[in-house]
Amino acid sequence: MVIFLQNLVNALQWGSFYALIALGYSMVYSILMLFNFAHGDIFMVGAYIGFGVSIGLLALSSSGALAMPNWLILALTILFSMFLTSFVGMIVERVGYRPLRNAPRASAAITGLMIGIILETGNLILLGARRVSFPSLVETTVYNVGGVFVTNKKIMIVLVSLLLTLALHLFVRRTKWGMAMRAMAFDFAVVPLMGVPVNTMIALTFAIGSALAAAAGILFGVAYPVLDPYMGILFGWKAFVAAILGGRGSILGATLAGFLLGFTEIFVAMIFPSTLRDLIAYSIILLILTFRPHGFFGEPYSARLRL
């Protein structure tokens, strides 16, 4: 029982990252029917921007010019990096995807792959192959709750990611901008006729997705403080799986699928030999998709959708 609960805690943290990254995939996918394969690398860029921002803020704080407690530095790091990374996302869209918007989908998809490679190797040139250690902004406190070990970082990661998901949900459901996004997902051709600035909306979608990826990157840095330029690739793939599994354009679906992926990986490793973890975990996911090809909350494609 203790082992089960412990793994539940582990899975909640691990799933948070998948969920946050899957959201960005899901949003872009629902509006443009486009697999933004560079998204995993935007997560990486976000983590590195977070690294830079936190180092800067720490230096500023310790120089005495503007003394701040560490939790404030972390909060500011998350906000600043989300803001900065959203521009990275918008640039990627402007440079990589907009010129190809009417090109075959395959061209746009490989554009994503290429942008991903550019971001990875660009980082490699900028900072070298050396692993970077994310500064420990919060002292780790370990709580022992009846044999289950929980750290303050784990709690924070899960709470922040749930909070961001909720904020996104409200944005999409309750605001005019959100309504425009949903409309675009519904029918891309008609929406511009209603006076919706399509380019602005798409840029906004990329910005929000990238900001969420940046938040995931920083939380990742807090939990696993070793950053390397290729950390986004595998994460991107798996989060992509979560986005599809959740159903096209469904925020709830992407979040749930992200957590489900985290749970599957952790619990498969608990029950089976850990060598077989990904093999079994992704076979299960494949099986789910066989029975629900449109994911949990996805609707079957119809003629109205742009394909």
Binding site: N7, N10, Q13, M231, I233, A269, M270, S274
Partner: peptide, 15 residues
Amino acid sequence: SFTTKDTDFSSQLTK
């Protein structure tokens, strides 16, 4: 065990 590039070892370590 785990595979190269893995960053989360919580399940293995819990075991």
